[in-house]
Amino acid sequence: MPMIEAAGKSFEVDEEGYLINLSDWDEGIAAYLANEEKVELTPNHWEVINFLREYYSEYQIAPAIRVLTKAISKKLGADKGSNKYLYKLFPYGPAKQACKIAGLPKPTGCI
């Protein structure tokens, strides 16, 4: 497994750059992964990242995009629970890119 050095720590990632150990994650690593993805983290990004981490901690999976938009719209309002809003924040796919930055595995049902 490839190792990455960031925020003064080293951690394992898979071939696609997803964190191997969820417990390695912290905000410094998120900033590093975001930088790799060329995403500049704003409070709106953090809102989605924190949402994903909470979802994962409750259900032990990263949600499929359709499920993510529905759940976000319920919690943060319909204007944020749309593909358009999420793609604006994470242009290479909210499920894939946001999950990676949040330190989660690739979403189940991501096809």
């Binding site: 409750e58 032990q60 999976i61 499920v67 759940a71 049902g109």
Partner: peptide, 14 residues
Amino acid sequence: QKNFSPTYRALEGY
């Protein structure tokens, strides 16, 4: 091993 039992509770959202 991963405890996947919480995932059954996610099915409703799917």
